[in-house]
Amino acid sequence: MTRTIEYRDALNEAMSEEMRRDERVFLLGEEVAEYDGAYKVSRGMLQEFGPKRVVDTPISESGFSGMAIGAAMLGLRPIVEFMSWSFSLVAADPILNNAPKMLYMSGGQFGCPIVIRGNDGAGGQLGSTHSWCVEGLYANVPGMKMVIPAFPADAKGLLKSAIRDDDPVFFLESERLLAYKDEVPEEEYLIPIGKALVRRPGTDCTLVSFGRPVHFCLEAAEELAREGISCEVIDGRTIRPLDIDTIVQSVKKTNYCVVVDQSWPFASPGAEIAAQVHAACFDDLDNAVGRVHSADVPTPYASELEQEYLPNARRICEAVRATTYNA
């Protein structure tokens, strides 16, 4: 049985279910408790779990993320909410130098089973400082996993897996998806980290994406279908581990691939996927892998500029036509 709920409520259910199941799990961050969540993701959780497990913090990302990492070293399972991953930059040292390296530097003595989650990518006209896509910056670091769900059911199932995971998980949500409604199973379920999903089967070109741009890909695939180009849309769902096998399997069938990534192009996950596809499908590709990214500029404020900055459906269509020699 399923029902239709918002992405934010799927996240809320995941956290609440895991907190009922495991007392080691707690939530901390700015405005998570008394305010009911800056984006209402943690709505009602203070009431159910009390202030010891739903902890309001000051605007002090370096301090409270480091604090959560210390607690995780004791075997607790903190969920850190960043109102925006844009604000994680001031916490770069704890989240990059401590969380993903603790197990290695301690020779296997101390793990760091933490989940860090929040909005990633452009919201709506938030300007450059508040629109960070951190995939490109952070996916470079070994020791952590990176999850980036595009649909409510995935958001719930993957967040539950992330909370149960023994390794640190960076969980990238999107402000633009929080109100997105879709079917979510009523019964309990988990979605394993590291498994991509074919969102829309197709035969002519593989579109690979993750997070919010998956929706742009589905939009583009509709339009391209009307032109007679059948796209297979792969929702990567996680960036580390990357499910390259599902991507390669599709490319071997379609012989064309376009990667759509909301990061800037240089040294991005999209670049990495393109490199891996080129290596694994060298004899199968009928053209070089196409890439659509956010424009290589600071995120603009003006709506017209921001829309064109994003890897939108129009730009994806153009890239698919060019890659499949239909331009």
């Binding site: 707690f26 301090g63 604090m67 990492i69 210390g70 607690a71 004791l74 704890p94």
Partner: peptide, 22 residues
């Protein structure tokens, strides 16, 4: 990293208190 252990110290204290109490 100079000072990096100071939030961790807060976290260890948060953690022992959480374990003992919750």
């Amino acid at each position: 990293i100079v000072g990096a252990q100071t939030p961790l110290g807060a976290g260890l204290a948060f953690g022992t208190k959480y374990i003992d109490e919750v």
